[in-house]
Amino acid sequence: MSDTNEAFGAGSPTTPISVMICENSAVQLRILSQAVREAGYEVQTAKSATDALEVMKLMPVDIFLTGIEVGEVNGLEACWSLKGNSDTESTYTIVVTASGEERRLEESLDAGADDFIRKPVNMTELRARLRAASRLVRMQKQFRHLAETDSLTGSANRRAFLQYLEMEVTRSERHGAETSVIMVDLDHFKNINDTCGHAAGDAVLREVVKAMQSCLRPRDMLGRLGGEEFAILLNGTDISEASTIAEEVRSSIEQRLIELPSGEKLSVTASFGVSNVCPALGQDTPETVLQAADDALYHAKQCGRNQVIVCAAEPDEQLAEAS
């Protein structure tokens, strides 16, 4: 979404609310954008619905404030387009209509507009409408954040991670962007649960996530796939850089001293497999990219654990140890 963690973090209720203002009158656009910006919102502007929709494809916004006559594609059609796209259907839409255009009000609501405001725009009323929209947007974000978060560790859950991976693989294919994945599995984790108890195991998982997050960039996504298995999505990252990041994460985990609920302290290690989107190797779907990383991870386990293995860069190459 945008940077990865920002995309995942969009569920946070503390994220600033963003508004796209679409208006073909330069004067009206300036007045509206100034008023909305002064009210504390992040503002983007466009003079046509076509331009607004193009921007929102790359950088989704929370609230879309639009006039009706805004170019070849009118504001109502823009609302319809947003509501018909699963990526933008949650965008709150407000249509600005001229006074007395009751027919247009009905059309606006039928087109998927969530609210409307009449011209000339009363700025006090506009701010009130935006506050009401913001409450709904934040509530939706909070629900989405809870639905996408692993409750134990605070990382993305399996469903959210796989959904974002699918989006990034598609984007990589379309635009040729580098995308890499790191699979992570804690070594001998079952022994911790068996000897120290599940509360100790939970404490280890939480601390390991903190150790991993300390090495990651804002655009990276960390997800828990299940049990002690995690995955890291690195968009805009080639496999060489991904292996370097994996080694930093491995070292961070190994060096972390974890205090258990009993007061006992221990350290743990993890094994890593690294792969990337590479059509030449048949790694061009979320499943194949993950499988390649999982194969490399299995090789790391077989070779003694606590190491990083990178999948082959060429079909005839062997898996390479990176640590």
Rank of each mutant, 00 (worst) to 15 (best):
V43W: 03
S99F: 15
Q318W: 01
Y41Q: 08
P315L: 12
M212K: 08
M167Y: 05
F189C: 02
A312R: 14
A270W: 00
A132D: 12
C215G: 09
N191G: 11
E317N: 14
T45H: 06
A292T: 05
A322T: 08
S214D: 15
E77A: 13
Q307V: 01
I192F: 00
G9L: 15
D87W: 07
V209M: 08
E166F: 10
E38C: 09
R174Q: 14
Q44H: 13
A203Y: 12
Y92P: 07
L234I: 05
G100A: 03
L162D: 15
S108G: 15
R138D: 08
F116N: 04
A113E: 02
G112A: 05
G100I: 02
K57D: 13
C22V: 15
A7G: 14
V209Q: 04
V95Q: 01
V209A: 05
A156D: 10
T66W: 06
E89F: 11
Q283I: 02
L109P: 03
A246T: 01
Q291S: 10
S180T: 11
I309Q: 08
P261F: 00
E314P: 07
I31S: 03
A111F: 02
N193A: 08
E248R: 14
V268D: 09
L109A: 10
S155M: 07
A280G: 07
T97S: 14
E101W: 00
C278P: 00
E229Y: 11
Y92A: 10
D194R: 03
L58M: 15
A242C: 08
E264R: 01
M139L: 15
Q302F: 00
T91P: 00
M212A: 04
T195D: 09
